[in-house]
Nucleic acid binder design. Structure first.
Length: 231
DNA sequence: CCCTGATTCGC
DNA sequence: GCGAATCAGG
């Protein structure tokens, strides 16, 4: 079978549609899975989740078949025969020079990723209004021209304007977190605390299982998150 | 073992 | 250009 325009179009469609090479081959008929993959690559379309390529962890000195195969058996395409060619004996690479050259020069990493020496958890300081203060070592010279970035409003966004920030916490306000840390509008409840508790009455109801009154003495409630801080 | 895609290289 | 053979991860 030859690759007619129509067949190529089908290949493209299915390939980009997410079908596996096997499925495509079956759909097209008359071609093997390998043929499909080979054609796909030749067409330039590629890069679909490959089990092999997904990881570029360990460098594998890929040695290909320089192995002298006495009987190059080309089998009929329709037949899949289990192949067992374990070539353990060291084979003399007939193209050793080529391989050496390839190993030496041809394989240059296309991307020398500028590694930022790992990502160190940075301690940031939040200024009034929720701005993130810049530390002495935080300067980033390489942004001289005005970045197309949108400027932060002079006053805190309405979203969090009235919200209780970390710095607003005290023994008198409810520390119940609203939202999740890292979210833009993460804040704390901030309502008046239920005396003796880190939360307001409402959130005490959520933090502490209502269980209870047993004797005169109020048993200590189940401790949430390590328990209320007593100061 | 099966599956997958990637790659090589004789044709 | 084609695709079998082979590799290698899931």
């Amino acid at each position: 079978m030859s690759w007619t325009d129509e067949r190529i179009a089908t290949l493209k469609k299915l390939w980009e549609g997410g079908s596996t090479a096997s499925q495509i081959a079956e759909e097209l008929g008359g071609v093997s899975r390998n043929a499909v993959i080979g054609k796909a690559h030749r067409l330039g379309l590629k890069s679909r989740p490959s089990p092999v390529k997904a990881n570029a962890k360990k460098k594998a000195a890929v040695k290909k078949k320089a192995a002298p195969k006495p009987a190059p058996i080309r089998k009929p395409k329709a037949i899949m025969t289990p192949k067992t060619a374990a070539n353990s004996p060291p084979r003399p690479p007939s193209n050793a020079v080529e391989q050496a050259a390839r190993a030496a020069g041809a394989n240059i990493p296309s991307q020398p990723i500028p590694n930022k020496s790992a990502e160190i958890p940075k301690i940031v300081s939040i200024g009034p209004g929720g701005f993130q203060r810049q530390g002495p070592g935080d300067q980033q010279p390489p942004i001289p021209p005005a970045p197309p970035r949108r400027l932060v409003p002079a006053k805190p966004s309405p979203e969090i304007a009235d919200k209780t920030s970390l710095l607003d916490l005290s023994d008198k306000v409810c520390r119940w977190p609203m939202g999740h840390p890292g979210e833009p509008d993460f804040h704390f409840c901030g309502a008046d605390v239920n005396p003796g508790f880190p939360y307001c009455v409402e959130h005490c109801g959520r933090a502490f299982q209502a269980q209870l009154p047993r004797g005169a003495r109020r048993p200590p409630p189940p401790l949430p998150f390590g328990g209320p801080r007593v100061r």
